[in-house]
Amino acid sequence: MKILFLIGNDPPVGAVSEWSEIKNYKDKGYLSPGKDYFRIFKALEHNSEFEKEILLARKNAGLPEKGISWDDYYYNYYLESLRVYSEQDKSKYKDFFIKVEKEVNRIKKNITLDTFITDQLDNLIIGGFVFPHDIPISYGAYPEEETISGKDYNGVFIHISHEITLNELKTYIDNNWRNIFRLIKYLPPKSKYYISKRDLRIVELKDKENMEWDEIIKTIIKEFVIDDFDGKLNKISVKRAYGRAKKRLNSIANDPHKDK
């Protein structure tokens, strides 16, 4: 399932699917989704349970399996308030949106979704597109680079991009705790000596190959096939990973008589 991100508002000026395309519009001053918003909806493309629900919704609503194209929706539905329709067409469009709304409610009962996703469910059912919005709080997980199943993570985070109150944060966590806890359950068991394959490689590149930090970053991105579109892998994060790994390595080989 491919999700399109609409650019601009009243009316949108385009529909794109990749962050590089969004950034081009953003640099030109168009209203466009932020990184957190992009990341959340992009992840849905790989969620088989969600895709199954969307496909069923389209079938129940009488829509094509791939939904309606943005151009088709824009000219035939989005601009309906600006057109003059016959009574028959009005009835047709009213019935269309009633069916979509029915499927939105069905999906909301079947699976637990972030409120930012449920607000866009009708658009996702119709054609797999979402309108740009800003997300002050979001959550997610860092995938474990050694995973085979694709369901293992090495960290769960809550990201705050704008000023919020303590009550807003508590409310957000309460409303989304079920999904956050699902991610937490996929975290590895706590281990004093656990060092990821990536962090071990960072130590090796620094200590044995005497690489500079910039070289290490490029090597790690290449070897572990990391899509670092938001620049999370930088000198600060790599130095921290190096320090963390060295500390654990030293603790493993620590001489018990050294401090006596």
Rank of each mutant, 00 (worst) to 15 (best):
S69E: 05
L4H: 08
K218L: 13
I160F: 04
V238I: 00
D174G: 10
F38A: 06
E144N: 10
D134F: 08
S32R: 06
V100P: 03
D10K: 11
I226N: 01
G140E: 02
S251R: 12
D174W: 15
R106P: 02
Y139N: 09
R244D: 06
L63S: 00
R178S: 14
L187S: 06
Q88V: 00
W19M: 14
E146F: 03
S196T: 11
N179I: 08
N9K: 10
F157V: 15
I217H: 07
I180H: 03
N176K: 06
Q120F: 01
R83F: 02
K260Q: 12
P143K: 08
N154A: 10
P64T: 00
I252P: 14
D72G: 05
N210K: 09
S196F: 06
H162N: 06
Y25Q: 03
R244Y: 09
H162E: 07
F229I: 01
L249K: 02
L56M: 09
S91E: 12
W19G: 11
K222C: 10
R201N: 05
K190A: 12
N9T: 15
E65V: 00
H159L: 13
K92G: 04
I164Y: 01
D95K: 13
L55E: 10
I137R: 05
K35S: 11
D114H: 15
K102C: 04
K109V: 02
Y172G: 00
N210R: 11
H162S: 07
S81I: 04
H133I: 15
Y77E: 04
K28I: 14
L6T: 15
F41I: 06
I195H: 01
G8K: 02
D230G: 12
V238P: 08
D72M: 11
K190V: 15
N234T: 12
I236R: 11
S237L: 14
D199T: 11
K59R: 10
D10H: 06
W177Y: 12
D119P: 08
E80M: 08
K108N: 06
N24M: 11
R178A: 14
N60A: 07
R240V: 13
I111C: 03
N60G: 06
P143I: 00
N47F: 08
E204N: 07
D89C: 08
S81V: 02
L6H: 00
